[in-house]
């Protein structure tokens, strides 16, 4: 694929966080990986998605909009996404993940966030 061979420039390092996943809400349906026009997203052996070629991402937001579970975010980080970064990262149950395999999504979803209080 031509897009894959494109040279990387230094600023691509900053884009590593461009496509972010929230595994606690992910149901592993695979819409994000199947309908990404640039094939940026791949599924790991557990079925959880991860971004592999973020420098190819054109920010079309297709993965974000086709995710039924609001588990994908494309673009700049917001304070709320930073506060939940502990739950994101490697797939649940895998090495380096803070979320165990038998995690309770409900409990994770209920964790209060500092910027949430004003909406309650």
């Amino acid at each position: 694929m031509a897009a894959r061979k494109r040279k990387q420039s230094p600023q691509h390092e900053d884009q590593r966080e461009k496509v972010r996943f929230y595994p606690a809400w992910c149901k592993r349906c695979g819409n994000c990986a199947a309908f990404c026009p640039q094939h940026v997203i791949e599924m790991d052996q557990w079925g959880y998605p991860h971004a592999v070629r973020t420098h190819d991402c054109i920010s079309c937001h297709m993965c974000e909009k086709l995710c039924p579970d609001f588990a994908v975010t494309v673009g700049e980080e917001t304070p709320s996404s930073v506060s939940r970064r502990g739950a994101a990262g490697p797939s649940p149950g895998t090495e380096g993940s803070l979320v165990s395999q038998d995690h309770s999504p409900e409990r994770l979803a209920k964790t209060p966030h500092p910027d949430e209080e004003e909406h309650d």
Binding site: R28, C29, P68, D69, F70, P105, A109, K110
Partner: peptide, 13 residues
Amino acid sequence: HDKKFPHVWCPGC
């Protein structure tokens, strides 16, 4: 936020 997420629908619904 007080509702249980992820929602009840099947994967990919």
